[in-house]
Design a protein around this nucleic acid. Sequence first.
DNA 1: TGATCCCGCCAACGT
DNA 2: ACGTTGGCGGGATCA
Length: 837
Amino acid sequence: RSVLKTPLKQAATSHSVLTEIQPDCQPLTTPPKPKEILPADPWTPTSNLKMLISAASPEIRSREQRRELSNNTSGVLQAKHCLQEHLSGDEYEKSQPSRKEKSLGLLCHKFLARYPDYPSTAENNYICLDEVAEELNVERRRIYDIVNVLESLHMVSRLAKNRYAWHGRHNLSKTLQALKKVGEENKYTQQIQMIKKREYEHEFDFDGERNEERARSFGSNEHSEMSFVELPGMEFRAASVNSRKDKSLRVMSQKFVMLFLVSTPQIVSLEVAAKILIGEDQLEDLDKSKFKTKIRRLYDIANVLSSLELIKKVHVTEERGRKPAFKWTGPEVLPNIQDTKLETTSTTCPPPISGCITSKEQCSKNLFPSRGRQNFTRHPSLIKLVKSIENDRRKIQSAPTSPVKISASTDQNLSAFPSKMAQVPAIAKHQLEGQSKKAKEMKMKLSRSALECNLSSPEVVPKPAPPRTAAPPQQAALAQPLGVCPPSHSSVPPVVLPHTHSGVSYAIYLHPSQAHTVTTYSPSFMLQPLPCANVTGIKSINSKVLNKITTEEGDNQIATDDPTKSLTAKERPTIKSETSSQRCLKRSQALQENNLIKRCRSDEESLDTSLTFFPSGYLIPLTQCTHGNKAGFSDKEKAGICSLQHTTYSSPIAGVIPVTASELKAVNIPAFHITPLNIMLSPTSIAAAPVLSNSCLNSSNTSSAQNPSSSVLNFTLQHVGLIPAGVQVPANPVLQHVPVSSQPENVSRSSDNMNLQEEKVSKNILQLLDCGGLCGKYSAPCVPKEPQEPQTVTEIFFRTPGGPNTVSAVSANSDGTNRISQGTLYIPQRKLEVSED
DNA sequence: TGATCCCGCCAACGT
DNA sequence: ACGTTGGCGGGATCA
């Protein structure tokens, strides 16, 4: 196997070049293109690092090195250090390339070093694959691996053959948001849970039934086909050029990223990822070879993502042993973009049906074309939902907490938006990252104990979270770390809160994932923009799979860690900047309300349901679109994305269904079985908690908004009576399970039970919804006919427009009473440990 | 050994 | 037909 293929150009320069050592930064052998490098924010630690790396010799080999590299600030220094040492000492050493020196990760670093993170729009950042390959002395094949992954993040886009455009991280936050959304729609969280559970149960499938059942339940298989997720601004370019089926790396990369974004701990093991990625297509024939191949590919992707510092390798230790996994170290992704503000906002809603919607849809349609026939049938599996929401501009005070820092930096997020703001220093980002890193782990351990207590009732002390004050956020933050119950709560005894208002004024949006087969594109239900800006979403997730499966992985445990970290650094970021940025966006001011658009795919199986509550009096069902099965989203995905930009959308079809709480009841809501939670709520009480925050789409860095929102959310919830005072809902988005016990004493009950209950609940809810006509057919097929038992628990998420900030669980009793567990968020866990390295 | 993952054959695509 | 992409999996390295 001599060199057959190597392209001419490259052939000449052997990889030997790589080996060469350059003491200094100056890249001798591989001259980086100066021009490109310059533009970006040279000064960020990262950039420096990159420079070093690029210049540096391959000497750097040990993992430590890599790690260092990935680390931000400190990393730079260390890296230097290391480099120097190595150079001097080891030069003679194995000149041979050593595998590591040829690693994709290193290559990727070099590649990235060539381009600025945030290229100015002015200059044209074109990438010529040939040139790059040549300069980096690698086969072009390798470059493809890198570029494909970058493409998946929209950091580059193909312009033409052999030519790509470099976008850097400008689109990153948007992309991540989009991916997160899609991931949620795909129910990846559930899939993950399921897989974990299976493993846990011993892979043996004795209980084929169950597995099967589960599998179907979330229709994991089907989902899979989703295709490449496009970003609004970039779609065309990319699409135009890429006709090839995006099958693997690109899509796989996106999916992989999605897994991180939807996982609470944000840690994904390769095994799980591989299974999910495979599983989608084909159910269970986990071929060994296939699995192996998938893993290989995942490593390739992971290497690139690691170079981007989006993930980092860790090991999850479970009962079974250590498993390789990766932890998300990238920016926190704001759940959405929407936001809402509160009461004030423009009451004027944008026209529900207005053209925007249509345009959007069309957009989506256009995008989807490639996929082909699948669409036709009612099975628009393709349809995904898009929630778009944007808006907000002024977020009231919500920003409160956000102090300073970010102010200046507009952040990448901004960049997402068009134009011209391109160059924002990434500094803020770095800062955030750096902060985040710090102590998470330690905290986690501490917090871990807290986790144990699933239910505790919060003490009575109500802590009013002032909607707008800054202070609250902190609390929220604390709570979040675990995602579970905040320590404080744990000790607290369950209290039942009277739900104060059963105010009529809230609307509930449901988007059952599969609710209807939507013939039309439109999601079966649309949200109407209500006068009130705020919207809170409640999502019930079918816990069937989820809950039961306690995570086998350390994820849960890990959760502790992450949250902590996230709290510290990330949340901080102010929101203000965002605001500003946003205003730039659309003038859709009127539209501001968030909109959610979701397409539903009629997946019978899927059980998810999400509810969004609006403070308005309307009950509006949303489709959740889990988009369907296989078809997922095709390139056209973008449609969804597009939606983002539009502030409001109303579903073309469905329109709004006004329902008052009472009506709701009438509708059968009673069916809602909510498990006995600590708090009782009348159905009506479920009202939405108005949330303030949020918003800004692309605002600042990473995570920011959550605190404020969470605080607001908490406040709201408390106010509304959904949660007892004093209870804080974690800001952390994603799914959280809340254990609910019918009786206080049950607190200690096993998770399993809880899970069961939850499942039931969800089912009940679904049924209920179905009855109400909210869910459409969805329930029947999906939900087993089990009689509802009084105690079931469902997870419900309260989502602030800004993001999935908070979650709380709500359970319903057959008696029609709704209760919310107090602040206890339960996350199933197993003892897992995550170790870096 | 198992975890990683480099290497490059070769098929699908594009032009 | 030839060049570009990139799926795929053998098998070398690493840990």
